[in-house]
Each structure stands twice: as C-alpha cells, then as structure tokens.
Design a protein around this nucleic acid. Sequence first.
DNA 1: GTCCCTGCAAACGGTTTGCACCCGG
DNA 2: CCGGGTGCAAACCGTTTGCAGGGAC
Lengths: 145, 145
Amino acid sequence: MPRILDSFRTNALRFSPQRYAVLQYLTTHPSHPTAEEVHKALNRNNPRASLATVYKALHALAQAGLVREVNLSANVTRFECAGERHHHFVCERCTRIEDLPWFDVAGLAVKTKAAPRTVRTWELVLYGLCESCQPQPKEKLKWRK
Amino acid sequence: MPRILDSFRTNALRFSPQRYAVLQYLTTHPSHPTAEEVHKALNRNNPRASLATVYKALHALAQAGLVREVNLSANVTRFECAGERHHHFVCERCTRIEDLPWFDVAGLAVKTKAAPRTVRTWELVLYGLCESCQPQPKEKLKWRK
DNA sequence: GTCCCTGCAAACGGTTTGCACCCGG
DNA sequence: CCGGGTGCAAACCGTTTGCAGGGAC
C-alpha cells in the first residue's frame, strides 16, 4: 500500500514497521478499535508491537494528523483513520460504532443559538439500533426480499 | 430545599445527608464538576463525604435519574443534574463547559441519512470560544458598552 | 556518534470494590 | 436483628513514563 507509505513521507513522521502496521490496521479495520485491540491484532501477525509501542505509535500518528482519537464512552479511547470528517452512530444493542456522513449541523441556526460564543467545530453522535439490530417484523414478510 | 427532598421521595432513592449534599451541590453548581471536585467542595462544609461515598452517591443518583454523566474528555467523568435535555459547548481556551438549548438536530433529515438505522437520541457538542474568551477587537471600542 | 524507536516494567490517576462499622426501623 | 449507607484502604485497569538496548543514518 504505497498510499500509506506516502503519508509517512508527507507528514514528517518517521517510518517504522510498527507504525506502519498500526496505521495499516486502522485503514483496513474501520471499527474504531481500542489500543488493546490493535495490540492484540498486531501480535497475531508480524510485526509485533508491545502495548506501549502501540500507544506511542497511535499518538505519533495522531500528532501527524493521520489518526483521530474517538472518545465516546468514558474510560476507553478508540482510534480511527483521519479521513473525511464524519459523525458517529452508536448501536445501543451491539455497541458497534459506525460512521455517518458529515452534516452541516452548525449551519442550521445552531451558530446563532450558541451566540455570543464562537463555534469552530462540533461533534454529533447518534444513538439507536444499527441495521442488523433492527427489531424484526414478527414473521410475515420474513422471506420477502 | 424541599424540591430536592421531593426528588428522593419520588425516585425510590433512600435519603442520606451525603446524597442530599451531592445533589444539592450539583443543583447549585451547573459547572459539570468531576467527582473529585464534588468531593473537595463537600469536605469544606458539612456533611463530609469520602471520595468513595461521593462516587456511590453519584451513581445512585444517576441510577435514579436525578443526575447525568457527561463524558466529553476521555479520562474523566463529569456530572450534572438531569434537568431538561440540552447540548454542550466546550470552550477550547478555558475548557469551560456550558449548556446550550436543545436542538432537534435529528429531525433535520439526519434521520433519513442515518437510515436504515433507527435513531433514538443524539448528542451534539460544539467546540469554540466562550463569550469571555472571544478575541478582543484590538483597542478601539474597548470602553464602549 | 546521534537520533529516536522499541519493549519492559513500574508508575499513574480516576474509579471501583471489599469489608468492617454503624445507624434507623 | 436487618438492610443498607459510610469510610478506609486496597484493588483495578487503561494509559503513561523511565530507561536500557539497538538500528538507521
């Protein structure tokens, strides 16, 4: 994936196999994993990386703007690739976190309501049931596509 | 404050001086304090409450629906009285957290964009500069009210 | 030689828990 | 006597840090 290698070059971030592996894992797993999860996943294959190194890599990548921290539930930080801005959807049943397209929330008269404060950015998190956790319509139509 | 006493009665929550003090502190300090802050504040006056008790009280109050946890920054949980729903504004300079009126964000075509998920609720957090952290217009008009 | 990345283990800090004590009913 | 709130201290757990070792340049 030359794309990933490029991001090291263009972001003044030293390359290392561990950092590469962490970034690659995040790009291929858009599931907002925790540092622990990244650590476990990396140690199944190569290269290995200690938990401390995973943390350091994640912070270095975040510093370089390649990775974003996601703090939804207290007590644990999750990570994602810093692609386009988006919102998050949290399924209250399976706890999965999904990305939603970016809405211009603050354009919606919100800025005026927030006055006299100055709004620079915002975060919107929706809570509900994801597609596969929808309550099933009893029986009928079950086989209808 | 009979109002607060009432909430114990109507929420199937046992009264205790410590719980009362915690709840009272939250009602009179809408600054989203941490457990630590509540603890320190209580131990200046009476009744005292150990940190463990403050945590237990906060959780009991949250369970009863009288208090809400606010998780904005990772690594620390803040608490507020569970009054009307509202959004939060975080000042990026003084880190103050302010309440904003509730917007029907998800009514605005957002629900359709989130489909096929079902949206139950949402949280909107705005980031920027609060009123007293606004950049001052250089010199002029400084004394104009 | 210099820079800095890695890995280990210890430290850290917010939060939770186990347990003895105690108070009200 | 019982239920359960309190306080202390220890445990917990995600995260950070100090430090020795080592690889790239």
